[in-house]
Amino acid sequence: MTQPEFGATPWGRAWVRAVESTAVTRPNPLLPKARSLARNNAVTDLHTEPGRITATVSGHTVHIGLPLWTQAPRGVVADHTGDLPDELADALAVAVPLAEQHTHCGCTARTPHCAHVLATLYTLAQRVDERPVLAVTLRYPLTAPIDPDWIPLEAIDVATFYGD
């Protein structure tokens, strides 16, 4: 059973569709290059936070800004592995069309979606496949459910860590 290299889950697939949408009308020669970069681990230091993706691709620094949702998505509760029900993927429209992204890359290409930006998005799709809740937290800061048995690291006061 082989799986798509990018977009094995509906969550990652939504991002792959966004990346490849322009190729529907005319071929985008940058896509094969972008896939090749992603495949060969040229995308390093991929970091995500709500509304923002950064990465280094073949030495170029890539920034991608995404519009945030204005309110919390309803009914989204990730399980302990960071997974979400696939049925939600289509309803939520998690991926951002290329035209609505703000991108910047340190390379000299004049297109806002150079091979480095596209490679970042392919790698993002793989990360989303691995952890679907990432697709949602990119668009809205979800607070994790509170478990009384665990204390988040950021809630610990350094000053009183050792007590005395």
């Binding site: 009384p148 048995d149 665990w150 860590f161 007590g163």
Partner: peptide, 22 residues
Amino acid sequence: HMPPAAHAILNAEETAISSAAA
């Protein structure tokens, strides 16, 4: 009365420590 150092055991994702009571 337990300081965090006494229960500084990490969860699987290493984002939190066990509560003293747990």
